[in-house]
């Protein structure tokens, strides 16, 4: 593990919200490193602070205290627009609610994201077509609006959008939460495939099938890391690996 390259490092990261005039500490003094090439899964019970942590790691939300360093650069104090530029260059996102822009076709959702970093439209179209093809999305579907395709198809399209700018990390927030079982499998396979191809992935989930896909599993509880497990790369049908993860989660009280 010591040879792995650190992409994101947090330093005493904290996040608190004011609820009814009372401060609620969602993340508390959290130190964490995310490594290049890993499929990091952050798991925990509801309200553990998983999504909050993910959005702070990706520069979508700002911590109340502490720092987030990205390849050694502190992104905590960047302003809103600088963070947007940071995200377009370095991060890809897959959300639970899919969050494709309703008013744009599937292809336009992807191309507009690519154009943000100055990629040429022609090259983008070729790259997107290739990615869509890999994700099993036909050309016909790419011309449709998000509301006209299924949830699974839309989420795979969202993965294409996340990958179009060759990000350093893909952040996935419960990407299977709104899908049926066939959709869940398809999306997890896509994420596993891209990770196997070298893409770093950080995924937040509370779905056991999703947890199995990670090579590094972090258990979050009450705003802190309660435990960590390194079961190795995902191999379909590897019962020993699955058992190890199951045991880890049991130990964590899940």
């Amino acid at each position: 593990m010591e040879n792995k390259e650190v992409i994101v490092r947090t330093d005493k990261l904290s996040k608190s919200f004011s609820v009814g005039g009372k401060q609620q500490h969602v993340i508390k003094n959290l130190d964490l490193e995310i490594y290049k090439g890993d499929f990091t899964v952050i798991v925990g019970s509801s309200g553990a602070g998983k999504s909050t942590l993910l959005y702070m790691l990706s520069g979508m939300d700002k911590p109340s205290l502490g720092k987030v360093n990205y390849y050694g650069v502190d992104i905590t104090d960047m302003n809103d627009d600088k963070l947007a530029v940071f995200r377009r260059k370095h991060c890809g996102f897959v959300f639970q609610q899919i969050h494709l822009v309703d008013s744009m076709s599937v292809m336009d959702n992807v191309i507009s994201t690519g154009m943000l970093i100055g990629q040429k439209q022609k090259e983008l179209k070729a790259k997107a077509t290739l990615l869509f093809d890999k994700m099993g999305i036909s050309e016909e579907l790419t011309c449709k609006f998000p509301a006209q395709i299924s949830g699974g198809e839309a989420q795979r399209a969202a993965v294409v959008r996340a990958l179009i700018n060759d990000p350093d990390i893909v952040f996935a927030d419960e990407p299977t939460g709104a899908l049926n079982s066939a959709g869940v499998r398809a999306v997890l396979d896509v994420l596993t495939d891209i990770n196997n191809a070298g893409q770093s992935v950080v995924m937040v989930t509370h779905d056991i099938k999703s947890v199995f896909r990670g090579n590094r599993i972090i258990y979050l509880q009450d705003g802190g890391i309660m435990g960590e497990c390194d079961p190795g790369r995902y191999v379909s049908g590897d019962k020993q690996r699955h058992e190890k993860i199951r045991k880890f989660l049991e130990d964590m009280g899940w």
Binding site: A84, R87, F93, F95, L100, T113, L116, R161
Partner: peptide, 8 residues
């Protein structure tokens, strides 16, 4: 969504 994917 647009801000998330990098629009300023």
């Amino acid at each position: 969504i647009k801000k998330a994917v990098g629009f300023t």
